Each structure stands twice: as C-alpha cells, then as structure tokens.
Computed example of a mutant assay.
Amino acid sequence: MSGKSSQGTLGLPAVWAIAVGGMVGGGIFSTLGVVISSAGHWAALSFILGGLIAYATGHSLAALTVEKDEAGGIYSFLRDLGRPRLARSAAWVLLAGYVLTCAVYAYTFGAYLGHALGGPAWLPQAMAAFAILVMTAINLRGAGQAAGVEIAIVIAKLAILAALAAFGLSQFDVERLSIPAQPGWLGIVIGAASVFMAYEGFELIAYDYEEMKDRKALMGRIMPLAIGSAALIYVLVCLAVPMLTGTRAIIENGEVALSQAGQAALGTPGLIAVTIAAALSTGSAINATLFSSARLAETVSGDGALPEALGKRNASGAPQGAVLTLAALALALAVLGGLDALVQGASVVFLLVFGILNALALKESVGRRIVTLPGAIGAFAALVVLILHLVGVI
C-alpha cells in the first residue's frame, strides 16, 4: 500500500456527481431506441442486466483500488502486477473508449439542440463542437471548478428526467411497450450489450481516488449509490417514454426520442425542458469524462507510456496536455462520425475492460467472489454476444 494520507478535496456529493454524470450522459438520450428495438417490452430488463454487471464491476474496482491504495484503475493494477505491456495496452484502449464516449455525448448534445432550434443542417455539428469546447475550458480551470459544476448539473438533469418519468408512468399501459415482433431472451442481452456505454462512467472516480476525502471509506460507499442511481433512472425512463410517444416513434427517432416525449407530455414547455436536460446531461458527461480520463492519461504519461506533454499541468493544476488532446480527438469524431458506430465501439471497449476488472479481482482474491465471478462471466458473455451481433451472426 502507498500509505499516503487522505488529504483530498472531493467529498461524497462531488464523487457521486462525477460517477453519475459520467453514466447518465448521452446513453439514455440517444440509445433508448436501440434497447427497445432489441429487447421489446423487456427493454427495462436490459437496463437492469447491464446495471448488475456494472455493480459487480464497481465492487471489483472499489476493492482493487482500496487494496492498492492508489489512483489509476485497471492501468495501475496491471502495472503493479508486473504486466507493463498489458497495462499500456489497456490504458490506450480505455482512453480510446473515453474519446468515443465524449464524441457520443457531444453528438447527442448537438442532435437535441438542433431538433429543438430547427436550424440549418450544420447546426447539430456546431453545437457538438461548442459543448466540447465549453467543457474543455471548465476542465482547464482545475478540479474544484469542474466538480462544483458537476454537482449542480447532475441534480438539475435528474430532476427533469424524474419529472418526465413520473408523468409517463402516471399513464402506464403495458400494451404500449410492445413491438410487432417481440424478441426473446437473446434480444434482452443484445439490448444490454449494445448500449453498455450507458453504464460507463463509474470507473472514472478511480482516477480521482487520491483527490477524495477519506478515500478508502468513500470508495466502498460510492459504487452502489452511484450505479443504483443511474440504473433507477434508466429503468424509469425506459418504462415511461413509450407511454408518451409509443414504441414505434422511439425506434424510428431514437436520437431525439426524449424530446418527443417531453413535447407529447407538455407541448413546447416539455420539449424545452427535455432539451435542457439533454444538454445538461451530455454536457456533464463530457465534463466528467474529460476530468477523470485526463488524469489517467497524465498517470500513464508519467510512466513513459504516453508522450510527456500529456502529463504537463497548467497554473490551475489541470493536466492541460491530456485535456486538450482528448477533447480534440472527441471533437473530430463528434463532427465526422456516425452515432451507431460510436455507441457500439464504446460498448465493446467497456465490456472488455469491465470483464478484465472483474477477472483481476478474482485473481487477486479481493472483494466478494459471489459478486466478482458473475460480473466477469456476465461482462465477457455480453461482449461475445455483442460482437456476434455486430458481425451479423445473431
């Protein structure tokens, strides 16, 4: 163990906001149609299945982080086990995943604002670039500013999503969840795997471990709280939105399905409210991902596995080189990439990483085996199903 004193500045609200902000980002706004088209009226079960794998992975991550007592997540775990090449490979893959997710969040931000404003065809791309630029500026101001913004954004967006869910569930009719050809159990797994990036985000706090107050106690407490919060809102929204728009509209217009639900519920005020929630949600997800993944890049750079420039901090204490590099790559993908490819690529990356994390916890005999073993099996099984689905085998 490192034996470092716990003198960080991030308390429970800030760490919870970073984790939830990282999870409840573009996923629920841009990929709800993907889950429903794959799983039909069992779409909520897909989110629950994904949440269980995420919970197991969060348990493994917390146990490994507390055992090692250092920041860095899977990278530092593999490095300390004497596997430097595998550690570097894992870090590069993970950083690629974070660039993809930032691009998804920015793409979704642009799609919702473009839909609400009804501007020219280039407006969504311009709004996507704007979101990344603003959150980059916030991150360059330092950890305290980014964390404070994160708390406010997460509370606001969850309040709007909860209100939308309550309105939809007040009109609940199970028949509205159905689609013409209901898929079987395989559709549930495909639905969970295809949008697994919706649960990416909780692992970001491992990179901020040394900036937490009373970090060992906080690391163990935060995982079920943050992952449970995300899973709950996903399930409620998944059940509520079809009550307002019908499942066909969600499948056909998945990129802005929640905007249509808000408009169906309250007209123009509902459209505006959901657009604000989407902007806050995706914006905070970009913020949280840049905030923490830049610190991963800084750690890897310090070990000589990435260019030294990525580890340089500015006057505010932010890893400027890493923030600017990750943001620039995400901006390019958000403007030029397609949403489906970005989502599926990110899901493959994080299922692989989460499976490895659970396997590491098993190997190191940390955490509860009754949790880590099903987590490893579930993540790798979902990864195989997703790859087979993407290549057209199933």
Rank of each mutant, 00 (worst) to 15 (best):
A63H: 10
L61Q: 10
N253F: 11
D214Q: 03
H389W: 05
A379I: 09
T65A: 09
G345D: 08
V237W: 02
I151C: 11
L78C: 10
R83Y: 13
K213P: 08
G254A: 03
L342A: 06
T108F: 05
I153A: 15
M243W: 00
V104F: 05
V15S: 00
W16R: 04
L388S: 12
G345R: 02
L113T: 08
P120T: 07
Y112E: 06
I179K: 01
A217F: 07
H41M: 13
F109Q: 09
L373T: 10
D303Q: 14
W16K: 01
L333R: 02
V66C: 14
L158C: 04
L336F: 14
A159K: 03
V154N: 08
I233R: 02
F172Y: 04
D173I: 01
F29R: 01
V235E: 09
G114D: 01
V241E: 01
I153T: 14
M135G: 04
L61M: 15
I48V: 15
G3M: 03
V66M: 13
L49Q: 04
I190T: 10
V385G: 02
V20L: 00
R248Y: 07
G26I: 04
D303T: 06
A240S: 03
S347D: 11
L186W: 13
G321T: 10
S37V: 02
F77L: 08
N253W: 06
R295V: 10
F130M: 13
K312H: 14
D214W: 00
K157M: 15
A327D: 09
Q171D: 12
V391N: 07
G11A: 15
G40V: 08
I276E: 04
M1Y: 06
S6E: 15
I179C: 00
A231K: 05
Y234F: 15
H59Q: 12
I394F: 03
G148P: 02
S281N: 08
A116P: 06
L336N: 09
G345V: 02
R369I: 07
M212D: 12
G50I: 00
L86A: 12
A288I: 12
A147L: 11
V393F: 15
A278D: 07
L296T: 09
V241Q: 00
S2M: 05
N139L: 12
V24L: 13
A330K: 02
V154F: 10
V349H: 11
T268Y: 01
A217T: 13
I155F: 14
V154E: 11
N358Y: 04
I227S: 00
A152F: 14
A240L: 00
G97F: 04
S5W: 10
T275G: 08
Y234C: 05
